[in-house]
Structure formats: structure tokens, C-alpha cells
Computed example of a mutant assay.
Amino acid sequence: MSAPRRSLFRPCIDLHNGQVKQIVGGTLSEDSPDTLKTNFIARQSAAEFAQIYKEHNLEGGHVIKLGPGNDEAALQALSAWPDKLQVGGGINDKNAKSWINAGASKVIVTSYLFPNGQFSLERLRDISNTIGRDHLVVDVSCRRREGKWLIAMNKWQDITELEVSKETLDILSAYCSEFLIHAADVEGLCQGIDQELVKKLGEWVTIPTTYAGGAKDISDLDLVDTLSGGRVDLTYGSALDMFGGTQVKFEELVRENAIRQAENNKNST
């Protein structure tokens, strides 16, 4: 019996109006821009962050375009580390292949799968067939409502009726190679992860999965590892010193991640 996999740190680049920012997840709305709460605006470009991730061999990171005006910055990030970063935000069947051709290892979709707020299996099949399952990540970011996690689209503003559950994830995983799951209710708050959700994901997922939302301490990587049985990876955002935070040092996280990656590589051989 092989040794269990260990959860890893996955980096991110969140783009808003062409700048790298850390935003409180539930506050981003084009209809109500005054409600936006921003924790951090970087001086460095998206490409500079991509270069940092390249230098530390941090693969599987996601570049998320939060609204219009971010294509150029995203393209520059992909050019800085081709075929190693994923890109999401406004992805559909018409533009997905162009982002792969531009250097994205995978594209991330949510809203495209929910025309008029209703899940479309046909659209999922179409985009999967267009670019190939191996190039597709489904973002099942969610909000908790009455004891359930419901998938949220349109920058987490619109809550769909599709529940994050084993049944849902099994259906989706037939057409994609990875999940990205933002717990939108705790995203950007640095007040702790949604432990119940992470535990459930560890029980449900059968493909690589990255969780984001609320991570506030380097020990959260161990917590996610324990709760999910090593089946879920973790993204840090606003708590990281490279994003203006004070709770988690990027260099310490890089060292811890290298140890875990080496163990995973050894155990997989």
C-alpha cells in the first residue's frame, strides 16, 4: 500500500482592473462597485508574481480575471511561465482554446456552465470536447445556505441551485481534470478555512482539487492535509506577506511545500 499524498500549497494571482489584488470574496459586484473591499493592491505586475512562482517551482497556480480589463495582465503572466499556470474568468467555449494556445496549462470555468443560472451539462461537454478534459478545471466555488454549499457564479454574486455534493462532483469530474473551490463566504477574511467543507471534499473528490478561502496560518496546510486526507491542496491569499499580510511568510511556505512535494514524488515512484 502506497503512502498517502500530502496536501500542497497552490499559488494564485487575482486580477482586478489589470492589477494584482486581494479582495474580500463576497464584495465584488459590477452593479455595486462601492461595496468592494480590497485587502491589498500589489506594486508588482502579474508577470512578476508568475516569475516568483517559476523561481520556486510552484506549479498549479491559478490566474483569475475578476471582471474586464485583465486580459493583458493575464497574458503577461502566462508568458512569464508558459504551460504552468491556469487561467479563469470569462472563459467559454469560444475563447478557451486561445488561452491554452497563449500558454495556460488549463482553463477554469464556472459562469459559462450556468446560462440563466441553470447548470448545462451540454455546455460542460462542449468545452471539454473543445479543449480536452486534461485542460479543463471546473470552479465550483460556493456559498453556504441552510446547511448546504451552493455553487456561486458571476464573481460569487449569483447563487445557483446546484449543490456541491459527491453526486455533483462525480458528474463534473467526468469532463474535467481538476476542481478549484473558493469558499466565497470566508474568502479574503483571514479568519480560518471552512473546515467542514474541506473535510467533505476529502471524502468526495476523485481528481486534483484546490481549496481557497480563509487560510490564516501556515498550520492551515497541515489542517487541510488532515481534514482531507491529503486529497485537497490549499491556496493562501490575503494572509501572505507577499500580498500585504502578516500571518504567513511566503518563504516559509515555499520551504514546507518543497518538503511535501519531495515526499509525494518519492511515494509515487
Rank of each mutant, 00 (worst) to 15 (best):
K94Q: 15
F114K: 00
T27R: 10
W156C: 00
I100N: 03
S141Y: 03
F40D: 05
Q51H: 11
W99Y: 12
G89H: 05
Y53M: 10
N92Q: 08
D126Y: 09
K37Y: 05
I131L: 07
P82W: 09
P82V: 14
I108A: 01
G90T: 13
G88Y: 07
R133D: 14
I100C: 08
T35H: 13
M153F: 05
G132P: 06
S29Q: 06
G89N: 05
N116I: 04
I41N: 12
T35W: 07
I41D: 11
N57H: 11
V63R: 00
L150F: 09
G147Y: 06
K94R: 13
N101Q: 13
E48D: 15
S128W: 06
I64F: 08
W156V: 00
C142K: 01
S29W: 00
G90S: 10
I23K: 06
D34Q: 14
L58S: 06
G103W: 06
G88V: 09
L66E: 12
R125L: 14
V140M: 01
Q51W: 10
W99I: 01
R145L: 12
M153P: 01
V20Q: 08
D83M: 14
A77M: 07
S128I: 00
P33S: 14
Q118P: 02
I91W: 05
A47S: 15
I41T: 14
D83T: 15
V109E: 04
D71P: 05
R123V: 08
S105K: 11
E59D: 12
S111I: 02
N57D: 11
N70I: 01
R133C: 09
D158E: 15
G26A: 14
A42M: 11
L58A: 07
S79H: 10
R123M: 10
N92W: 08
D134P: 02
N116F: 09
S45L: 13
S45M: 13
L66R: 13
G60L: 04
A74H: 07
A80F: 09
K106S: 07
A73R: 04
N70K: 06
A77L: 11
W149T: 00
N101W: 02
K54H: 13
D158I: 05
S141W: 01
H62Y: 10
V87I: 10
C142N: 13
R43A: 15
M153K: 03
A152R: 01
N101A: 09
L28C: 09
N92D: 15
K155M: 11
G89S: 07
F114Y: 13
S141N: 07
G132M: 04
D34N: 10
Q76F: 08
K97Y: 10
E48Q: 15
P68R: 05
A47Y: 13
G25F: 00
D31T: 13
A104Y: 03
R144I: 05
Q44H: 15
